[in-house]
């Protein structure tokens, strides 16, 4: 095993991550305004901005899903219990003793097990929840004549808002954890340059050196 700087975040993944982050900030900001919690934007403009950002995010997700499936990168998110306890123990206890982060990133496991599990939950539960409720809300015109449409809309809207609060919670924890283990800059850098420190097997290293030398930094 050798630690090498390997390009594990290709261009599309970085584009997806950062544009998604920007759209989520726009959506949270306009969404809080629509909810009535601030009045920094006129309601009509907030509705339009929220809707356009949401449609853009849906489009982005469609591309991202396609990308995950066709490149096989979905495998990074398959849940595993290996080292899960060690990582949890680190955040809850060892970190205060100044211990090192126990996880070593692998070529096909660039997230630690807790991270992978969190992202999986985000992708399988929270994102679909906000997506489905948002689309139901957006297409209200098509089901407004259903009995109890008003009550259904209220339920849809509240689920949507609840999912949004949970996503906001994720954002806070996500950003905070960038400071844990390594420095904030060290954590953010890979998502900008694409290169992260990865434990490579000799076979992986040999393969990359031979076939994809651009992904290895000397």
């Amino acid at each position: 095993m050798t630690e090498r700087l390997v390009k594990v975040y290709p261009k599309f993944e970085r584009f997806w991550h950062w544009s998604q982050a920007a759209l989520i900030f726009v959506l949270l900001f306009t969404g809080l305004g629509l909810r009535g919690l601030h009045g920094l934007l006129p309601f009509g403009s907030a509705v339009m901005l929220h809707t356009i950002a949401a449609l853009a995010l849906v489009l982005l997700w469609i591309f991202a899903i396609f990308w995950h499936l066709t490149t096989g990168t979905w495998r990074h998110y398959v849940p595993t219990t290996q080292d899960l306890f060690k990582v949890a123990r680190f955040y809850a206890y060892d970190i205060f003793k100044g211990a090192h982060h126990p996880y070593r990133k692998a070529f096909w496991r660039k997230h630690n097990p807790m991270q992978a599990l969190t992202y999986l939950a985000l992708k399988l539960v929270l994102f679909p929840a906000i997506w489905l409720t948002g689309i139901a809300y957006l297409t209200y015109n098509f089901w407004e004549l259903q009995p109890n449409a008003s009550l259904l809309l209220e339920i849809v809207a509240n689920l949507h808002v609840l999912a949004a609060y949970l996503i906001a919670t994720f954002v806070i924890v996500h950003v905070y954890l960038l400071t844990a283990g390594h420095s904030f800059v060290e954590h953010v850098k890979p998502m900008i340059t694409g290169f992260d420190t990865i434990d490579l097997t000799p076979e992986e290293e040999a393969y990359l050196a031979a076939d994809e030398p651009g992904r290895l930094k000397r």
Binding site: G36, S150, I172
Partner: peptide, 23 residues
């Protein structure tokens, strides 16, 4: 009846904000 922007601070806002603040 439900109307966005008119009734901030309802139950769902309370729960959501509580989770957010807890985090």
């Amino acid at each position: 009846f439900y109307m966005p922007g008119r009734d901030p601070g309802g139950l769902v806002d309370m729960i959501g904000l509580a989770i957010l603040l807890a985090a």
